[in-house]
């Protein structure tokens, strides 16, 4: 049984009278433990596919099964819950909250999680920060951290609710080569520990870390 099953998934944006097909009848299975790279030029629908998988967006047509459950038609509230518990996002621009410390950012998802007690969550956040090598910097604000460190905080934040899948959209796009490779090493290590990871990238070098590759062109998986 696949962790994620996409069938005939389409996303069409309406711009006035004009219909733009961002994703066309995508079929894709992602198994537990996969390390998948989604590649393609800009405008090919990578981000749309990512947003659909991450339940940030609703498909226009098609079916999306997560852990064998149909999630394409879930309500706003249910999708928020799935995002919180099953999906960890890592963004290109980190998207940390500037007012919070590294630890504050990492425990933020726990605010919206009723299942994990606060105490336990904080301990867990600290141990994850330790794992990504930031145990000395948990009290620092994002503007006191380097780009690589910020992205590691973001990865820790993605992990804190123990999601089934990590979605990373161009995670190295804003980093220098060295920090970028560090981040990819962390993701690789996580994958070896059993985490399912999907990376969106247009860099071959980054895609090489993945076990599986798919290419998108004009909204279609090729």
């Amino acid at each position: 049984m696949a962790l994620i099953e996409l069938k005939d998934l389409s996303k069409i944006y309406k711009m006035g009278d004009l219909e733009v097909t961002a994703l066309k009848e995508a079929d894709l299975d992602i198994n537990s433990g996969d390390f998948l790279a989604i590649m393609g030029p800009s405008g090919s629908g990578k981000t749309t596919l990512m947003n659909l998988i991450g339940l940030l967006d609703r498909p226009t047509r098609g079916s999306y099964k997560l852990k064998d459950e149909e999630v394409a038609e879930l309500s706003q509230k249910e999708r928020a819950k799935v995002r919180n518990q099953e999906i960890g996002f890592v963004f290109q621009v980190f998207n940390l909250l500037p007012r919070l410390t590294a630890l504050g950012n990492v425990i933020l998802p726990l605010t919206y999680n009723k299942e994990i007690p606060t105490r336990e969550g904080i301990d867990r956040a600290k141990s994850i920060l330790d794992k990504v090598g930031l145990s000395e910097r948990i009290k620092h604000k994002p503007n006191q951290l380097s780009g690589g460190e910020r992205q590691r905080v973001a990865i820790a934040r993605a992990l804190v609710c123990e999601p089934s899948i990590i979605l990373a959209d161009e995670p190295t796009g804003n980093l220098d080569t060295k920090s970028g490779l560090e981040i990819m090493n962390i993701l690789e290590k996580l994958n070896k520990g059993g985490k399912t990871i999907v990376v969106v990238t247009h860099e071959e070098e980054i895609a090489e870390y993945a076990k599986r590759h798919i290419k998108l062109k004009d909204g279609k998986i090729v």
Partner: peptide, 10 residues
């Protein structure tokens, strides 16, 4: 946006 992505409801 970030809060919603990590699980905040409306």
């Amino acid at each position: 946006g970030v809060r919603k992505a990590i699980g905040a409801t409306n």
